Simulated assay, not measured.
Amino acid sequence: MAEVSAQTRIEAPAEKVWARLTDFSTYGDWNATHTSFPQGGPATLEVGATYQENMKLMGFPAEVTWAVEECEPARLLTTRGKGPMGVNLAMRYSLTPDGDATTVRVDGEFTGAAVSLMAGKLKDSATTALNESLRKLSALVA
């Protein structure tokens, strides 16, 4: 298993951060691993919604089928995905209001047989991507 996390403070209210975070039409503007949604993002962002995403992890293309596990607008979004080679992924975005700003934390988890072979590199690559994504998200929202 490889676990990654990143956190930042964005100078904007949680509702504004959430609006950008869940605007799937502009996902690629900030998400460093995203390449496309072959059939678009989820029609309705709610628990049980599914969607497919093309990503680039450690420089390699990956197709992931995601399912929304938790969704509390302006607070929490948790998704679980199935990727290539039996890799399972989980992403948890939590937003905590802090005055006129918002603390955004992202936690990711990668599991599966293939992960054990490359856990260290995957963790480094994913952590770098999460930090870059949060920097881009912050610049777009603030």
Rank of each mutant, 00 (worst) to 15 (best):
L77N: 01
A74V: 02
V87K: 02
A49Y: 00
T50Q: 12
G86V: 14
V47N: 02
W66N: 02
E70W: 02
K82Q: 14
G86E: 07
L77A: 03
E72M: 09
F60W: 05
K56C: 10
A62L: 12
T78W: 03
R80M: 04
G86M: 12
Q52D: 15
L89W: 12
F60L: 14
T65G: 10
L76K: 14
V87F: 01
A67G: 12
G81I: 04
K56T: 10
T79M: 12
R80W: 04
G86I: 12
G59C: 08
G86T: 13
L57D: 06
C71A: 13
K82F: 04
V87N: 01
M91H: 15
T50H: 07
P73V: 01
Q52R: 11
G86L: 09
A67F: 05
A90C: 11
A74P: 07
E63T: 10
E53S: 00
F60V: 13
Y51S: 02
V64W: 11
T78M: 08
L76W: 06
N54T: 09
Q52C: 06
V64D: 00
M85P: 13
T79E: 15
C71T: 04
T78K: 05
A62Q: 10
N54G: 14
V68K: 03
R80I: 03
P61K: 09
N88D: 09
T65I: 07
M55Y: 04
L89H: 04
W66Q: 03
L76Y: 10
A49S: 08
E63V: 11
V64K: 00
N88Q: 11
A74M: 05
Q52N: 11
V87Y: 00
R75A: 05
M91R: 15
V47F: 02
E69T: 15
V68R: 01
L89S: 03
M91I: 12
E53A: 01
